[in-house]
């Protein structure tokens, strides 16, 4: 299938599922095919920003500033980056309620990283963001030359949200981040592999992996808020090199099929890259 047909297929899925915006980028290590569709467009990052946060954690580990086994005090109290007002994250809106049971205790960084990624814990995310600091995370992203990723704040900082201060990602930016991991760049080999291992443990699997063969393994991170539905990661298939795919979408509020839209686009990319016959979506 030529890439023009893939673009048509993406547009068709977007139209059918009422997406108002879609961006797709992928890189295939088997064929070296690099595909970009609105890859520079900036989206609200939602929880995909947790991958750059994890990159910063592992950078700090590589720099000797942090140890994964070090412990961090679990405290649900944060300050807005705008005015310093305090806020808490809600356990009801968090993918991982278990971390809230650890309030008062000191928990290993490795456990917080895992909770932030595999169950998308907002509490774990803000604890790590607070500890590392926005400036450090921004510095890491700049040093890694990840254009298209903009870090403003932790999660659920409503004062910042009201002022339009949001984290942003582009498909191209996230693709380049995942390439660093696959190509063992920027971080030590050990840290790259540890990040991939954490991402392979992802428990939210209704998008990129949903329509892939059962033997596919996907190291990925999703991101969803009211009008945003993203997924980005590395797809490992037997007997071939992996590929990285980033799918960012935006739709009107209350769209029920947006996860299916991302899954369908992931499926289209899979069939495009493997040359297999496309099933009816």
């Amino acid at each position: 299938m030529p890439s023009s047909r893939l673009i048509l297929r993406i547009q068709e899925i977007a139209s059918r599922t009422n997406l108002t915006s879609v961006a797709v980028s992928f890189y295939d290590y088997e064929t070296t095919v690099h595909f970009s569709f609105h890859a520079e467009r900036a989206f609200h990052a939602a929880s995909t920003i947790k991958v750059p946060f994890m990159l910063a954690v592992f950078r700090a580990v590589d720099e000797g500033k942090l140890k994964l086994e070090s412990r961090l005090h679990v405290r649900n109290r944060f300050r807005s980056i705008v005015d310093g007002s305090t806020f808490r994250v809600s356990s009801q809106r968090d993918g991982d309620a278990d971390i809230y049971k650890q309030r008062g205790h000191a928990v290993p960084i490795s456990e917080l990283v895992k909770a932030m990624i595999v169950r998308s814990s907002n509490l774990a995310t803000n604890l790590l963001f607070d500890y590392l600091g926005r400036d450090y995370i921004r510095g890491v992203i700049e040093e890694a030359r990840l254009a298209g990723i903009r870090v403003e704040r932790g999660v659920e900082d409503e004062v910042a949200f009201a002022q339009g201060l949001n984290n942003e990602v582009s498909a191209g930016g996230l693709l380049n981040l995942f390439r660093l991991l696959c190509e063992r760049q920027f971080l030590s080999e050990k840290s790259c592999q540890q990040m991939i291992d954490v991402l392979l443990g992802q428990e939210f699997n209704r998008m990129i992996p949903a329509k892939l063969p059962d033997n596919a393994r996907v190291a990925h991170k999703t991101g969803e808020i009211s009008t945003i539905c993203h997924d980005a990661g590395i797809v490992y298939l037997p007997d071939r090199q992996p590929y990285i795919v980033v799918i960012l979408t935006e739709s009107g509020p209350g769209q029920e099929h947006r996860q299916k839209a991302v899954a369908s686009i992931s499926s289209a990319v899979f069939h495009y890259l493997t040359g297999t016959v496309k099933r009816d979506e």
Binding site: L66, K67, S70, R71, L72, H73, A106, I109, Y131
Partner: peptide, 12 residues
């Protein structure tokens, strides 16, 4: 005496 990684490394 329980502290987290904000304590000086030597003491921690």
């Amino acid at each position: 005496i329980s502290v987290d990684c904000r304590e000086a490394a030597l003491l921690l």
